[in-house]
Design a protein around this nucleic acid. Structure first.
Lengths: 339, 339
DNA sequence: ATGAAAGCGCTAACAC
DNA sequence: GTGTTAGCGCTTTCAT
């Protein structure tokens, strides 16, 4: 049998409500009583039952995380790093994190409903939003506290924490331009993710700004990175008018891309320059080290948790949309074009 | 206001207890009533309140994950992959996962106590156990259901899921031996982790078995991989009697090590061969691709969750210690020694 | 097959 | 300051 507030009350010679008050640091309670109760709690090894507590207080001290759906996203170190940031803040604020994975859109919505309607969490962090994301619509419909890690194209007024991905891609592309590259390609990710759209746009703006060609056939989609697309890739790169540099949507994709280039006989950075995004740990250790835009992943997670917990606790929120700074980190994968 | 079992009861024209029975698929309840109740639930958009449910039933349908402490562990893709496996099973069994991070041993124990004594979880998965791990002692003391991902040196009878890491390291080392390497070093990880000890032992056994030298000064510790240890490393490698190959404790460490070798003027695999452990996704994409022992990380997580949930539900457990198979994956980082 | 009633462990008026 | 009381939403005897 587990020890309850009643047991403590009996040992301390007070009523259960007094124990409860001690627990929540109620102001007007005599120091002597506090001491007695505290002693009884230690003596019995008392720990509050969170379920009972949240049943009445309607707060769970827990935030929910809607996990990325695809294997690729889940395994991306970006995800771990952002989680580290989320946990860092949540933990410090005495919040736990409830996670529940899903293999399909349907399962995802169901898991979210379990969290929300089962009142298991006080708020939700939603990662990697897509265009017209049904999860967001659902959240909105329930009028449930949530924060976006990223941004929504459809709803501009939501709470969210994000980078200026357009500017980030603009900077990355300009880095290649300043090195002297004239023909610059783009390696894309999932086309229905908002971040993909934003980075593609920044890339486009930089090219247009420098009066350089923006060619659809230099934009490599996900599918082309699979085994089947290999042929198309090497075809493109053997043309005289091939790109001499690429902006790559993400560090992990960059890894794979560099590998493919290598197998097709192109070396980085000698034949092709690469700059990507995120600055995950391994970019520094790879060979060559990858030039990338550091978007402060950890900080992103930290601020997202902070914003959500502020919202939950009803604290005033100064700014609904947080845009965190980014910083280009130049490493060995980008060089001036070979003359 | 949220819709409760009472509301459903009123609409369906039955008593709350009947609704509860429908919810838990009680056998003796008339099909007609079931239908009425189900309809009312849909009409009102009813979802059970898990807090209330678990307050009385004493089960939370949630498993707890004790997160790795250090940044390095947390960011290791091993961790994400094992989580994928855990979620895959947990989710399918209708369990959620509660996580709570910690920055120190002390915080870690506190977080665990909150989970256990606050009755927030039904069981716990404990990862990456150390020698004489206080977390294990704590768990044991509370007599709380838990499964180890790894093994305990002190308690051989605990529920755990693991690889045969001694054999895995034995195989990895023998691979290098069969390539013709005579001088083989070892790059170690945290010395107080059980897995480090096991892999070091397998490495030793292979060397001894082949009558090759096992030299303490060829065993590179964590500290030597930091910036400060760089000098010692290059010193070792410029000796005539330098190792021509290394067994590396972990893929991520291997990445860093290869990078350091490169900066010291040694190429992999031309000058130094490398074989490591885990087979995380990026080993295949790295340059060169890394030879590594696949330990079935996802499966490891999956089986751990399965074992724990079996334990929780009181199902009979055939085997307390599960040892999952491993498989050497030979890639470009290991080659015969240069003559 | 169904309802009434008690209670899980806790909090929060409301008294005094 | 502290005790009394009434629930939070659910399950589970015990009746009928």
């Amino acid at each position: 049998m587990s020890v309850t507030i009643k047991d403590v009350a009996r040992i301390a010679g007070v009523s259960p409500s007094t124990v409860s008050r001690v627990l929540s640091n109620h102001p007007k309670i005599s120091p002597a009583t506090v001491r007695k109760v505290r002693e009884a709690m230690v003596e019995l090894g008392y720990h509050p039952n969170i379920m009972a507590k949240s049943l009445v207080s309607k707060s769970t001290q827990t935030i929910g995380l809607v996990l990325p759906r695809s294997v690729e996203e889940f395994l991306n170190p970006f995800f771990s790093e952002v989680m580290r940031g989320i946990f860092a803040f949540a933990n410090q604020a005495q919040y736990d994190v409830l996670m529940s994975a899903a293999n399909s859109r349907q399962e995802e919505l169901e898991a979210m409903n379990r969290m929300i309607l089962g009142r298991r969490v006080d708020g939700i962090i939603m990662m990697a939003p897509r265009k017209k994301d049904p999860v967001i619509e659902q959240l909105l419909q329930h009028d449930f506290p949530f924060v976006l890690l990223g941004r929504s194209l459809e709803h501009e007024d939501l709470l969210c924490v994000n980078n200026d991905n357009i500017k980030a891609a603009f900077d990355a592309t300009n880095h290649l331009i300043s090195l002297g590259h004239k023909r610059i390609g783009f390696v894309s990710g999932s086309p229905d993710m908002v971040v993909t759209e934003d980075r593609l746009e920044g890339y486009r703006q930089a090219l247009v700004g420098a009066s350089l060609p923006y060619r659809k056939d230099w934009i490599i989609g996900e599918e082309m990175l699979q085994a089947g697309g290999f042929h198309a890739l090497s075809l493109m790169l053997t043309q005289p008018e091939r790109p001499t540099a690429f902006v790559v949507i993400d560090d992990v994709i960059a890894f794979g891309f560099i590998r493919q280039l290598y197998e097709a006989g192109f070396k980085v950075p000698d034949d092709v320059s690469i700059v990507s995004f995120n600055n995950i740990m391994l970019t520094e250790l790879s060979n060559p080290p990858i030039s990338t835009v550091d978007i402060g992943i950890y900080h992103l997670g930290y601020m997202t948790a902070q914003l959500l917990i502020r919202k939950i606790s009803g604290e005033p929120i100064v700014q609904n949309q947080l845009v965190l700074p980014h910083r280009l980190v130049v490493r060995g994968s980008s060089l001036h074009p070979r003359t």
